[in-house]
Every structure is written in structure tokens, then in C-alpha cells.
Amino acid sequence: MFILTEIRDTVALQPHTFGFEPTEVIARELNKKYANRILQDIGLVISVFDLTKCGEGKVRYGDGCLWYKVEFRLAVFRPFISEVLIGKVKSQDEDGIRVTLTFFDEVHIDKSQLPAPCAFDSSRQKFFWAAQMEPDTKRTELMDSPFQERLYIELDAPIRFRVEGDEFYDDEPGPPKAAQGAKYDLTVSKRPPYRIFASIAGQGMGPLEWWAGVGQADEQNNEQMDE
């Protein structure tokens, strides 16, 4: 889930920090710059892990700062493909489910990555899994199924998911300028700079309550068979 990546940068220390240990001040300045930010094709930076190389501080002409060339490692959040994680359901709509990890909210589960057969109940704004029905059951039949047989995916419920992929998106240039004749719709929400795509199709995947007691039931069955 977390990786280390090495970065090079130049850090300026202000005169009022000269009385402190340079490496501590440098680490603090690097955290201000990188922590909780997305690095393209790398991931979400959590914090500075350590400094691997730090040169001597140099003064530039007309500048009272000490400038240090440093090499350091960052602790970065970027789960690998097929990694299994646990988060909480943040929201749902007809297209799928959004999951939060508390510090990261852009985990998306497309409706095609739900266990079959699943359907979206528009009256409750929730997906449900009809585990007792055949995987190819049509939505109309699913909506006629008894409520007591539906396994709903509740908001804020702990959910186990498998990472299927991720995507980076850089929109730093911003909207086109109106002077150039380009139109820009302010109502269109920006794409997040980093998204994770996940699945809950498979044994043990999905809300934790779906599988609560399954292990105990298996143990009891094994004990009965041994007897």
C-alpha cells in the first residue's frame, strides 16, 4: 500500500532558522511542500521518510537564505494491483460506489465490478446483492426479489475491495482563456488528480458484514464431519 520514492530538490533555509539543526528544518520544509500532495505517476505523498544526502548550505548573491541541495525519500500511498484493502462506503449512485480510506477518498468501484447479480435500488439509493439468485438474473427480476433476501451495501459500512488499477490526471494548465474564444463550463467538476479503480466481485469481497461468521460456520462443519 505504501512505497518509498527518491526525490532531489533544493531547499532554502530562512535566517531565523540558522540556530536549529539544518536536517530537521529541511525535513520540515520538504513536508510543507510535498505532504498530502499528488505526484504524477507516483502517488499520494504521506510525508518525508528520511534524507539520504544533504550538501553544504550556500548563500546566493542578494539572498540571505542558505540553499541546500538534498536527496530524500518520500513515503507514498500507491497500492499495487490485486492488493486487498478495507475502507468505508462514502457514496453510491447508478454508476457505482465510492470508497474512502479516511486519508484518501478517490476509490471507485464501477457497477461492473460488483458481485453478480447486483442491482441499484433507486428508492434507497443503494446497491444490493441477491446472493440466492443466478448470476445472469435480469434487473427486473432482482427488483421483484424479497427484501429479506437482499444484501444491501450500506453507507459508512466497512468494505473489503481489490485494487484493479489507477489513473493520474493533470489539469494544472487550467481552463481555456475566454479571450481565445474557448468556452468553459464552471458547473463541470474537475477530475481528481489520482483515482483508484477497485472490485468487490469475488469470495470474501464486499461489506465485512456479508462474511461475518463464515469462518466460524466452516469450522463447525469441519468439526461435525470429523465426528
Rank of each mutant, 00 (worst) to 15 (best):
G96D: 02
K138A: 14
I159P: 01
E167Q: 14
A178C: 02
Q132G: 04
R139P: 00
K111M: 11
Q132T: 14
Q132L: 06
S112H: 01
M143Q: 12
G165F: 09
D105I: 06
E134Y: 13
D171G: 12
D136H: 12
D105L: 05
Q113V: 00
E154L: 13
I109M: 00
P117M: 07
T100K: 06
I153A: 03
D110Y: 03
P158V: 02
W129G: 08
E106C: 00
T137C: 07
P146Y: 03
P175G: 07
D171Q: 11
R98C: 11
T137W: 05
E167S: 13
E172K: 09
D166A: 05
M143W: 09
L151K: 15
C118Y: 00
D110I: 03
P173R: 11
E141K: 14
K138H: 13
D136A: 13
D144C: 04
L101W: 04
Q113N: 12
I97Y: 02
K111Q: 11
D144Q: 15
L151C: 09
D156P: 00
Q113D: 14
A119C: 14
V163H: 03
F168L: 06
S123I: 03
G174K: 02
D166N: 15
D110K: 05
E154F: 05
R124A: 13
A116P: 02
W129A: 01
V107M: 05
E94L: 08
E167T: 08
A130M: 13
Y152V: 03
E134W: 08
P176C: 09
K111A: 07
D156Q: 13
